[in-house]
Each structure stands twice: as C-alpha cells, then as structure tokens.
Design a protein around this nucleic acid. Sequence first.
DNA 1: TTGAAAGCGATACCAC
DNA 2: GTGGTATCGCTTTCAA
Lengths: 349, 349
Amino acid sequence: MRATVKDVAKLAGVSPKTVSNVINGIVFVRPETRERVEQALAELDYVPNLSARGLRNGRSGMIGLALPDLLRPYSAEITHLVVELAHQRGWGVQIEQTAAEPKREFELLSKARANLVDGLILNPVNLDDSAVMTAGPLPAVVLIGDVDQDVVSQVAIDNVGAAREMTQHLIEQGFRRIAAVGTPEIPRGASGTGRVGGTADTPGTAAARLRTTGYREALEAAGLPHDPELEIGLDRWSPEGAATVVGRYLEDHETPDALFCFTDTIAAGALSALWTAGVAVPGDCAVAGFDNILESQYTVPPLTTVDFDRRQFVQSALDLLGERMADKDAQPRRVVVPHRIVSRASTAR
Amino acid sequence: MRATVKDVAKLAGVSPKTVSNVINGIVFVRPETRERVEQALAELDYVPNLSARGLRNGRSGMIGLALPDLLRPYSAEITHLVVELAHQRGWGVQIEQTAAEPKREFELLSKARANLVDGLILNPVNLDDSAVMTAGPLPAVVLIGDVDQDVVSQVAIDNVGAAREMTQHLIEQGFRRIAAVGTPEIPRGASGTGRVGGTADTPGTAAARLRTTGYREALEAAGLPHDPELEIGLDRWSPEGAATVVGRYLEDHETPDALFCFTDTIAAGALSALWTAGVAVPGDCAVAGFDNILESQYTVPPLTTVDFDRRQFVQSALDLLGERMADKDAQPRRVVVPHRIVSRASTAR
DNA sequence: TTGAAAGCGATACCAC
DNA sequence: GTGGTATCGCTTTCAA
C-alpha cells in the first residue's frame, strides 16, 4: 500500500498537520523538524493522493479543454499551447471533443461542476443551442472563438474584419471572381448544389457566418457583384470535404480567379483539388486560407492566410479562466486578439 | 452550495446508501423508492463529486496520454482517437506533452501513482533514459511506439520492416540514389553537416534508429551502395526543420532520385524545399513519407507513405491498458499493428 | 431492500 | 511551531 501523510507523520514522529505544512510550505516549520519530515517523505516515497486533496480543497488543479474536432492541425496547435501554458501555471489539462454536439458540451459543464476540473476552455461551434446559454450556476468557463454572448469570458479574433481584409487583399491583387469556400451549408433538405448564402437565420457555425459576412462586405465595398454561385458551402471543415466539393465545383463551373478558403485545412483540400484538375496556383487560380497553421508555410505553393498570435490567444484564455477561477463573480471579459494578413506565393500575381 | 448525497437522501426520505444504490444502479431498489430518489436528484440538480468518489474508490476514471510533441498533425490524430475511444469506455483523458524530456515522463508516472489517472499511455522518444525503466511500483502503463523493453505492455508497428519495404518500393520504382531524411542526429559537437549515420550507440530517437536500419537493409538487399551522404539527419521531426535542412542539402549536393522522409511531417517540409528549389516531384525527385496522416492525401503531389490502422493501434493500446488496470499483475503484452505501403503520385514513375 | 456508521487521505481549525 | 481532530462527499461493510 502507498504511504499516506499519517505514515509519514508516524515515521517522522510528528503530526499529520506538520507533514502537510512541510509539503505545502506555507507555514514556517522548524528546520530540524522539516528535515526529519523530508527524510520520511523520501524514505516512504510519498506521493500525495490528489483525489483526497481535491476533495478537501474543492479544487482539482485541472482544467478542461473542449474543441469541436481534435483531428485538425489547428486543434493540435491549440492543444499544444494550452497544455504548455497551463503547465506553467501548475494546471493539468483534460481534453475533450465536442464534435459540435451540444450534448457533449453539457456533459463537460457537468464535469466541471463535479469538481473534476476547476475550469473549462470551450470552443463552441454554434452557441444558439450551446450549453453555456442555459441558465444555472456555471463553473469557470472561457469561450474561445467568435460567438455572440456576454455570459462568460471570451477570447476571439475579429472574424468579420479578418475575412473582409483577406477578400480586400485578393481584390487588391487584381482578382475579381473570388469564391468563398466554407460558407454555411444548409443542414438538411435540398442541398443538391452544396451552396447557400448565409443570412441572419441561416444555420451553420458562427465562424462560417461571420467570415461570410466579411467576405460579402469586402465585395460590396469594392463594388463587385455578389454572386451566390461563388459561395461554396461545406458542411464540415475538413480537407477531404473541401477537396471533394471544390473538385466537383471545378467540373461544372468556370474556374474563379481566387478561392478564399475559410480555414487552412480547407485550403489544403482546395489546393489538392486544383492540382488534380490541372489548374495552376496561383497562375490560373489563387488560393488563400485562414488560421496560418504551421503547415501552411510549407504547402505547394505556400499559402496566403490570416495569422493571429495563437500563443497570446491561448495565454489570454488562461488569464481569463484564472480570473474566473479565483473570483466566481468576476465580470465576464472579452479579449480580441489582433490578426494580420500573411501574403505568400499562393496569391502572388 | 452544491447538493450532496446527504441532501438528496434527506429530501427523498431515505439514507445516503440508497441514493448511492440508485445512482450506481448495481443493487435492486424498490421502484417507488427509486422514483422518489430520482425526483430528489433532479430537483436538487445533483452532480456527484468526482474527487470524493475517486478517493473512496481508488480510481479516478481518467487516463493520461503523454506524447512527445502535441503540435504535430500526427499527435492530433492520436489524441482524437484516444479521446474518442476512451470516451466509449467511460474514461476521461488527461493530456501531457513530454517534449522528449524524461523528466516530464517521471512527473507523469508520479501523477499516475497519485491516483489522478488510473492509467497512462506513454509515447517515449528514447527509452534508454526514460522513466519507465526505473524500478519501483509502476501504475498501469502502455507504451506506444517502438522501443525495446518488456517491462510494460506496448503497441507498436514494425518500424524496421516498414522502412525496409518503403525503401524497397522506391527501388522497385526504379529510383537508385535514395536519401533518408530524419536519420539520427548527433546531439552535440561537430554537427556542421547535419548528417550522421546511426549506429548501435548513436543517440537519437528509437524510431529514427529503427527506420534507418530498415532503410539500410533494403539498400543492402538490393545491392545498392550505402552512401552516408544520403542520410540526412534531423534533430527534430518538424516541417520547418526538414525544409531548412533539405533546402540546404540541395544547394551543395547532387539531387537524389528520391527522398524517403521518416514522417509525413518531414515530407511536407521536404516537398516545400523541393518546390522552392524548383525541383519537380516526382519528375526530378520522388518523395515518400511515413504515417499516412490525413493531410498527406492532399499534399501536392499526394504523398506515398506508410499507412497503419491508427484506430486499431489506439484501440489496442486501450485494450492493453484496460487489462493492466483491471489486473495489476497481468503479463505485459506486446501488440504489433500491421502496416502497408500506400503509393501515390509523389513517387510515380 | 434499506439504514447506520466507518473510513478513503489530505487539510484547516483550534488548542497548547 | 506543532498536535489533535473534524471534515470534505461518497461508498460500503454490517445489521436490521
């Protein structure tokens, strides 16, 4: 059986409380006592039982991280940073995948209330039916990603602005027929074309709607026509989906001047489809992405994309989470992390 | 304050034990009693305290997953599967990054012994100085990846065989001067060239050594000369590292017929470097990878690579872990998951 | 079938 | 400074 504080206390000839004091190092302990205790700790190879500590303290020392789809390189980057930066604060990270199912988000919040995690970083896909909006006492939660709420703290980027600027950038490069890839897809029904314009009440992820808005704003500002045919819908932001849909699109549509893909992952699929179709990039069709994942610097050709400081993004999320964990009644705050356009060969003229 | 079993019991007019019985559903409870309890549970919005449960049961219901570098798409795929498949078994997943530091591996094992996780899936980079080899009572641990030990259970692929087959495949395609990218790098000292042959006592990761061995075996079997100049060392398996090293290599070496990159991530960097240097793939130089990450199907051109059933890989790891968690004295087992060569355009003749 | 009470291990309160 | 001791919330003998 593993050693407990009691065993250590007995061996060191002190009380459990003293052992605890030594371990947590808050109260002053006489050096010679400390010495004895530490020796006993080492001798018995003492490891504290974190469940017991958690029970007593009401804190587990862990936070939860819930992302819609862990499979994507983007998720890997977020996870990497959360784990690294949380570790610096002495927090462990429990990871979850919501797969865009609100049900899973509920489970997570409940887990947080079950004291298994002290806080939760949640990337909701669609807040309308998301768990956070339900009334009731919430654990410490920080939302990452752009959704419209002010119930809990949030860190986001300006999706509309970024999409507008990217579209504008493409226009400035001289491209005119600019397609958007990843616009909201009709969830059910006659989705034969796979294209649909997002309106206020159109289903789809928040980011998809916002980026579509920015795209349209830029077109309008430049006096370019809004062509619904150029909004290519995707029900899931995956390379396989993008490759399939873009490939099919190229078969029966005139090739656009440029594709503005709503994530780099989509762009990877699009590049693949264009290559398969024998369309030169950027010569016959330019391609831009969004997120600036690490891999996008090494695609062929390198990808123009929207960059934001992911480390600061995550750091902010942890800051906000820390605030809420320390003070349950802290005002929800919203942090917007700046972004910028990174222009690479995929949109060169 | 949150409701406890006691509160629920009081409200339902029963004892805590009965509430517990209802919650865990093991013992038969009279339907009308159950009804009352369930109503009370709902009314008080009861959520069990998992720390308390963990303390009492000695199990937390969570497993740990420790990967060397969470940043990679490969890590994302593993994490995705572990989270999904563990969830099916009712396990939560705590995630960690070892960054190839044995120190972190130690911390994790200690965390496992601290009852925060019931088991640990560990992907060690270099077992020689890895924590698992230290004596002492180990928690349930399963190793993923090819390292040489029989202390704990392990799931792996045949790295030597796969590398041999891939090299052979390239030879069969007619390539002769085949370079290997990702061979073990000298840790310190005169690493001016960035190339070094791995020998038995050469430092480097286990996978790097094993894949190098397979590569050499195939060359030898085909009667091709072993040219140390064709073993391109990498200290870290990242696209940026690969792009830099391969780019530099191309400047002062004759371009090989083919590059066998030891991961798809390396291959992505290599493809980028070749594109930058104006070397056509596969026309002037073929490229092959290893792992068949999702993105490799969509690179330009699509990447020939070594595929293995990642889902089965992870499923096996969880099976083995389950065994060890159920029976501490279960014999360590070793599962080897089959692999196959997937030939795509990047090595077409 | 259900109730009473002990105890998992660590910590904080209150004495000394 | 340090020692007893109650307590966190849940589960589980043992009785009834």
